[in-house]
Each structure stands twice: as C-alpha cells, then as structure tokens.
Design a protein around this nucleic acid. Sequence first.
DNA 1: TATTGTTATACTCTATAACTATA
DNA 2: TATAGTTATAGAGTATAACAATA
Lengths: 168, 168
Amino acid sequence: MSVRTTARETGDSSRKRAGNGAAVGDVADDIGLDALVGHAGYAVRRFQIWIFQDFIRTLGAVDIRPTQYSVLTVIGANPGLSQMAVAKRLGIERARLVHLLDSLEQRKLVKRVKSKADRRSHALHLTAQGETALAKFKRLAAEHERHVEEKIGKENREQLIRILAGFT
Amino acid sequence: MSVRTTARETGDSSRKRAGNGAAVGDVADDIGLDALVGHAGYAVRRFQIWIFQDFIRTLGAVDIRPTQYSVLTVIGANPGLSQMAVAKRLGIERARLVHLLDSLEQRKLVKRVKSKADRRSHALHLTAQGETALAKFKRLAAEHERHVEEKIGKENREQLIRILAGFT
DNA sequence: TATTGTTATACTCTATAACTATA
DNA sequence: TATAGTTATAGAGTATAACAATA
C-alpha cells in the first residue's frame, strides 16, 4: 500500500490538487501510513480523539468534559461511593479525582459527605441540582452518541461496543 | 488489580453485593456504569489506554512510544516529507513535532535536510541507523499487535480496523 | 501577506511521592 | 502498618500565540 508519491511534499504542501474528483481536500492523502494501517492502536487513537472532540463540542454549552461526565454518571448510579471506589472503577488516579471533585463540588453538582463507618472516607452524592443537571448532560451525551452513529453507522457502533465491552 | 481482599473497600457506602459469590474479583464489579455502557467513547478510551500501555511496555526495551513510532514509520515510507506534511498527516501539532524530531535526531534516527525547493522547510529522512532501528521497532510492534489479537480475538481485531479505517 | 519551523506559555492528564487523619 | 483523602511535583500531550526566514 502506501501509494508512494513524488515525495515532493516538502516543496509545497499547499498545492491544491485540483479537479481529479478524489479528495478535494488534503495533500496528506498522498502520504502512505505503511505499517500503521495494520495497527489497531493507531486507528483506535485517532477515533478516540475524534469522539472526544465531538463530545466536548456537543456538551460545550454545559461545560462538561468526558471524564466529568463519567464521574457524575457513576456517582448518580451508585450514591455513597467513596473516592477510592470511583477512582478504581473508572481508572482515574485518586489524586486527580480530588481536583475533579473539587470542581464539581464548587459547581454544586456533587457533595462529599463524611462517612460514619470510616471517618477517613467521603461518601459521594449528587446534589438535587446535580441530579437535574446530569439528566440534561445525559440528553446531550445521547445526542453526541447519535453523531457517532452517523459517522460510523449504527451496526458498526454496536459492534464496536460489543467488541470492547471487556474494557469497561 | 489483583484479588480483592475483604471487600471492605468503600468504607461501607452503598454496598449491595449480592451474596451470589460470583465476585471473586473486584469490588468494582459491583459498581454499575449506568449510561456509560451505551457510550462507544467510554469503551474506546479504556481500550486505547490498554493498548498504548501494552505498546509502551512491548517497545520499552528500545524506548519508543506510539507517537515516535508513527513518526518514524511515516518518514520511512515517505522520505523527503516536510515537518508540516508529517504533522498534518498524523494529526500532530507542528510545534510538538519540533520536539519529537529534536529527540529522534539526537538519537541519530532521523535527519533534517535543508530543502532546496523551499528554503523554509526541511526534508525528513531516516538515517541508515534509523532504517535498521525501525525494522526492529516494527518487529516489536508486530509482537504488540499479537497481544491485541490475544486480548480481543483475531476476528474482532480485524473488524475494529475495518470499522475505524476512515479515521486514519 | 502567507507559510515553515521555532520558541514560549498555559492548561490537561498521568504518574509519583509524601503528608494527615484515621483504621 | 495500612488506607483514604490530600497536596505537590514532574512529564507528556494539547492548544495557542508570536517571531524570523522565506515564499
């Protein structure tokens, strides 16, 4: 593969490849990826970047990023969890979760309640405001998910989720 | 992760753990992901983290990370490319590519040749040493890819690459 | 005027280590 | 001793802006 081209890119990559119909856009189309096309990780990474960008854009109006959304969702579905439990479940460093929760708590979406059973730990809950907000975030996230479906197709999206179910 | 101990994890919290005995594993198994299970992005992100970790581990002996590998591979397959062309093709910021190339050039894997056609730009090439090294990196990357196959299965890996081919 | 490579800055994320208060 | 939450720091990675040389 790797349609090896003139390797003249260096000279002027701004050239506009007119009218051949194929890919009006990028000069980059000429550049072969060689071994990268056989690596799942490369495609997965590029896709992950696209999907996060769309998520961030779609939830931009409410200023919620993917990690914040995942934290709110898990707390909403499992009220009373400790910070350690959330961190472990989502694969977030506990040190980082501290800052994430600081921000969410300042925004009155989450509250830390001192646990009676173990006074070292906090039981995490959504505030009433947080519950309402999360419902809205979920509607926006569903909209984002429709963008994904439009991008790769309904069947492919479902297959993807099935294939990767073990990593959640 | 490893074997859950006493399951005293969340300091009490909302421990529902059905006494079904199924959970030899993590306490985290009890924690539902709710809406996250329906989001392709969540699974994709978790998988991407796993796959990068395996790549970094597998190529740890040669100290090559995924982005470095992608840069070397593209230069190897398209000698003479400018920095802009590589950056655009791989979706890397040109400012960041400068540092990546500084490092690869110091390691004598890549060389920047002043372009005659456009004296603003550099034509990128692998050194002889870089060619040899890349061949080795590719063998290790293929080993990594076999790990992916073992993890998700041959068919699934191929499907994944097919589904995401548009993002490369 | 626009582009290439460069430098610089800031903000996010990841990875650790160490501290405190509990257990 | 060990753990939960916290603080601090360092390294990648990402996003911008600005500058010099060149187009």
